[in-house]
Structures are given as structure tokens and as C-alpha cells.
Write a protein that binds this DNA or RNA. Structure first.
Lengths: 339, 339
DNA sequence: CTGTTAGCGCCTTCAT
DNA sequence: ATGAAGGCGCTAACAG
């Protein structure tokens, strides 16, 4: 293996130029005549030159690299967001490093350190469920690395957030069920230390009260984003004295577990129990059109968050104020209930 | 924003040491006494030092970074593979840069260039469907960057591959249907320029012949990994003179389209038509237990491919022979057909 | 055991 | 319009 490392010096030598001229030519600087640029470019291609980003970044103190931290890449919502991030970043000449926290605080801390070591220019993150301490994030800011949160709200001051309107989503999900004629609507909630699940829950309560339905504590089942929760909760749900006719699940995984269990018990969806779930996995809805979903615009969120981050990076010294962008979710009903 | 860039020189100065000693201490070199190491480490932490990987990589001519190229990150199979890659890479002290080709040859070329610019130590890739020309990959080798293919076979000589035994999978899928009593088994095939789909198709044919069933050309429907294909093919399938009672789909997306269409036409699955599909999306099988799947071990594949790549990197000059690792898929039946 | 020196490849003043 | 020189932060010879 012959390490074919062509440098600007090699090009310079073979053209009887100085490396600085070559550098300028390759960077399309106005301080080099067009003819020279052409010659340099041709030679560079001929020799198979590849700019060494390490050296360039080191010198410029700018890597044109963004770090992305998500809980799990395999969750469809997050991979959609990443697609959006990548696209916007790519267009702006940035490379993206993707990391998974696996919802573990310790991994998150380590990742932040790694990204700092890599000297990323900015970080986009969806904070892990375990994270309650934010010291590791303050270090980032100290190092001058911009940080934007997406999907999961983080209320440390002076950071930008790009979020989905979960209250509205929860409200619309519940109202949809009410308008379909449901009277006893259960709720599978998510971890209440996360804003998004709190907000969905509040949307649920608000819809009930707006339509004059009572809020019944027993209709609320906590869930930890596991299918198992969906099954167990459904079991309890069927055992309730009042028969449930509607269900709003704040997370799709529990909704899937619920559908599986309920169907196996002969419950017809949506005839007997109509279900609306926040959805990250479009596949689930493709396969089972009976599940109405609150759809989350992952790609758009990724783009919005990246644009915002890039603005922060550009104004690094101009101190761009932190801001919060709220994106709309939308309810998708594929198969209408007969109610 | 105060750029808190602490360097080894800063540490050295504040301790009246030389930067090289600090460097050695931070790298836990045996050439520094333990006491000095302790002092340096303490000071580094105190000052909030973060090693600059750019400088280190530039100097060592090694980035400890791997590039990964997949067609789409949102396909569950690929995100599983990536999880496996990340885990193994992480343990070995490597960072991973993930890129999506979106099945586009031009994007793939660009990505390869970007990764070369980033001076990754190695690349793991699943080649795009469009790619038929491999010049961009030969450049990698010329630069001394190791390359390992996974999932999608690439038959340029001297590269390692980590693959799934698609012939076996296709065979087992078809044999499963035969043993269930199916006599007229259709096949939704994938793009035949990709080895994996050719092999699945061959497995299908081999199972038929082994069990004395005729191979019927009309039972084979080409598909391009789109749901739409699954629907259209199903329509044609129902119009066949011989009634089909089994279907082996080489890709899950078409299988999903098929299930959707067939169910909407009142066809019972698996009673009327039993279906087995190669599956990348576990969710689909969770929701619809009627679909028997050939499951692909994504995480394991990612780990295996990464281990192999790291071996190649370690022996860069020792010239490790290229090799092919074949991983087993496994058939998962969740709901038994009544046949 | 620690210090000195040099240079990885690039960019950027400053000079010509 | 180009050249010369220095340095980004780190490591690896080679001293001592």
C-alpha cells in the first residue's frame, strides 16, 4: 500500500509555484489569476490530490463538522430527523457525526467529550431520558461550541430548542376521539419528567374539559415506551368497570403493544375502541390502518434545527439570542371509525 | 464567548514542565513517572483541558475515525447495523461518521471524497443500488484506506465482504411455504443486479426443485423495493389462472404493500395465501403477526464487519487477505397457518 | 525520567 | 499576482 498522500507542496513543486499560491488557487481566492487557478486545479486532479481537512481545520480553528446526539438511531423518528439534519448540513458544507446515547446519562457525557475532542463547530441533541444534570453541557458552551436541542425540551437558559407542539397534538388526538363519539377515553402516558409527555397529557386533559367530559384518574396509565407496557395497560384497561371506547397513547410503542393485545382478545379497532397514537414509526400505520396517528415531521425538524444551529455558529460572537421553534404535528386518519 | 482552548503548553507552563512531558503523561506513556502523571492529570482536569484530536490525528497520521456509508439510515436494518458498528468502534476507541447515499451513485462518490478528506482510517459500506462503476472505491485503496462491504456484495477483488446467506434464506422461506402445504408459490423479486436478490431468487428456485414443484415464470414478479410494487404485483397475482397459495417476497416493503392490498380484497393471510418476507422492519411483524419473516441480524453484522475492518487497519502493511463472512438469517413464524 | 527540536498539511499575514 | 515565513496543537525522534 503506497500512501498516495499528495500535498499542496507536491503540486507547488511540480508547477514551480509556492504552496501558498496553490492553497489560494484551491480555495478560489480572488488573489490568484484565473489561469493559474485552472492550471493548479488540473494538476491537483491529475495527481489525485485530496485536501487534508485535519490540517485545514487545525489551522482555521473550524472543522465544519456538527455533532448529533440522539437516544437511538433505530427509532424512525430520529433517523428522519437525522436525514433532515444531514441534508441541510451537507448543503452548507458540513459533515455530521452521529452518536447514540441509548438514553444513558453516562454515554451522553462521554459522547459530549468525544465531540469536543473532535472540535465540532456545533451540536444538535435530543437529551436522554436519564439526564437530569446539565454540567456536561455547560462545558460545551464554555468551549464556544453551539448547542441546539430538538424534540426533547431542555430548559437551561440561553439554549435554543426546536420542538413539536405536543400540547396541541395531545389535544387534537383527544378531541378527534371525542368528535368520533368516544365518551370514556383512556390515556397511555409517557415518562412525566420529559416535557413532551407532560404536554401531551395536558392536551388530553384540556380536550376533555373543553368538551365537558370528566377527567378520570383511573383512565391514565403510565408507560415507559415499551410494548410490554402497552400490553399490560390494555389488560388493566379491559378490567375497568366503565368500558373504555377510546384510547390516546402518548407513544407509539405502547400503542402497538395495545393493538396487539386488544386484537388478540377480540376487541375490534376502531369499532370497539378507537385509538390515536403519537407515531414515530410510519410502518406501523401502513400495516395497520386502524391506528390514527399524530404524525411528527422529523425531516423538517432536522432541517429547522440545523439551520438554527448554523445561524448560531455564524454569529458566534454576535451573540444570537436563543429561541424556540415550535413545529406542528398533524393528525392522520387512514380508516374512519364507524361511530 | 471566551474560547477556553487549553493546550498542553498551558498545562506545561503552569507546572514548569515541558509540553512533551505533559503529552506523554496524558497518553499514559511508561516514560513518565507516576507522580508526574498524577500532577499533570489533576491540572488538566482543573483547567478543563480537552485534547485536540485534529492536531493529534494530523501528527500521527491516524484519525481513529471510521466512515460508514449506507443507502438510508431510516431503514431499520441499516440502523441496526450502525448500532453494531458504533458499539464495536466505540470500544476500540474509534469515532464513526455516518453517511447516506440515498441509493444515488453521485452522492456515493461525493461521500467517498468527503471521507477521504476527513482522513478516515477505514470505511464500511453497503453499496448503492445505482452503483455499477467502482473507480471511486479504488481511489480509497490507493490512499491506503481500508474498505469492507456489508450486506450488499461487491465483487471487486481484494475486498472483504460481510453478508447474509441469502440463498439459504430464500430456500428456507420457500421450503417453509412448501411444508405448510403450498403448491403455487409466487415470488416478488428484487433488483437482479444486486447479488442478494439474485441469491434469494435462486434459493426459491432450488427449494421448488428439491420438492418436485415446477418453476413457473409467471409466478415471479419483479419489484423495486416499493410498496406500490407490492400492490400492483398482488393485483396481477390475483388475476393469474392458477390460484396462488403462497408468496415469498424478497423484500419487506413489497410484502407490506402486498399484505395491504390483499387484505383489502378480502384475502385471508395466511389461510388463503401464506406469505414469507425478508424483513428489515421488525415493527411490521409486530403489528401483523401473519407475516412470517426471514430475519436479518443487523447488529451482529455491524459488529462483525467492524471487527474485520479494524483487523485490516491493524495489519495495513502486513496485508491481511480479504475474506468473506457469511451470517445466518433465521425464519420467524409468529402465527401458524392452518394448513 | 524529562527537555529540545522538528514537522504533520494547511492557511494567512506580511512582504515583494 | 505570487513568495516567504510562521504557527495551529500535538507527538516522536533524539538528546541529556
Amino acid at each position: 500500500m503506497q500512501n498516495n498522500k499528495v500535498t499542496i507542496h507536491d503540486i507547488a513543486k511540480s508547477l514551480n509555484l509556492d504552496s501558498s499560491t496553490v492553497s489560494r488557487a484551491l480555495n478560489d481566492s480572488p488573489r490568484v489569476i484565473q489561469k493559474t487557478k485552472d492550471i493548479v486545479l488540473a494538476k491537483a486532479t491529475e495527481m489525485g490530490y485530496q485536501r487534508n481537512h485535519l490540517a485545514s481545520s487545525l489551522r482555521k480553528n473550524k472543522t465544519n463538522t456538527l455533532g448529533v446526539i440522539v437516544p437511538r438511531i433505530s427509532r424512525h423518528f430520529f433517523s428522519s430527523v437525522i436525514s433532515g439534519i444531514e441534508e441541510t448540513a451537507y448543503e452548507a458544507g458540513y459533515t455530521v457525526i452521529i452518536c447514540q446515547s441509548l438514553e444513558q446519562f453516562n454515554r451522553e457525557k462521554k459522547i459530549v467529550n468525544t465531540l469536543m475532542g473532535q472540535r465540532v463547530d456545533g451540536v444538535l441533541m435530543s437529551i436522554s431520558m436519564e439526564t437530569k444534570d446539565y454540567k456536561h453541557l455547560e462545558v460545551l458552551k464554555k468551549q464556544g461550541i453551539q448547542l441546539v436541542f430538538f424534540d426533547r425540551h431542555c430548559d437551561i437558559p440561553n439554549y435554543s430548542n426546536v420542538l413539536i407542539d405536543d400540547f396541541k397534538g395531545g389535544f387534537e388526538a383527544t378531541e378527534h376521539l371525542i368528535l368520533k363519539g368516544c365518551k370514556n377515553i383512556a390515556h397511555f402516558s409517557g415518562p412525566q419528567n420529559l416535557e413532551i409527555y407532560k404536554n401531551r397529557f395536558n392536551g388530553y386533559k384540556h380536550a376533555l374539559s373543553k368538551h365537558g367530559l370528566p377527567f378520570i384518574e383511573e383512565f391514565v396509565f403510565p408507560s415507559k415506551l415499551m410494548e410490554e407496557d402497552g400490553r399490560k395497560n390494555s389488560e388493566k384497561l379491559l378490567a375497568l368497570p366503565n368500558p373504555i371506547d377510546g384510547l390516546f397513547s402518548a407513544n407509539d410503542v405502547a400503542a402497538i403493544g395495545a393493538m396487539k393485545y386488544l386484537t388478540s382478545k377480540g376487541v375490534k379497532i376502531p369499532e370497539d375502541i378507537a385509538i390515536v397514537g403519537f407515531s414515530n414509526e410510519p410502518i406501523s400505520t401502513v400495516i395497520n390502518p386502524a391506528l390514527t396517528t399524530i404524525n411528527q415531521p422529523g425531516i423538517e425538524m432536522g432541517k429547522a434545527a440545523t439551520e438554527l444551529l448554523l445561524k448560531h455558529i455564524a454569529k458566534e460572537n454576535g451573540a444570537l439570542d436563543s429561541q424556540t421553534i415550535i413545529m406542528d404535528s398533524n393528525l392522520i386518519e387512514r380508516q374512519s371509525s364507524k361511530k
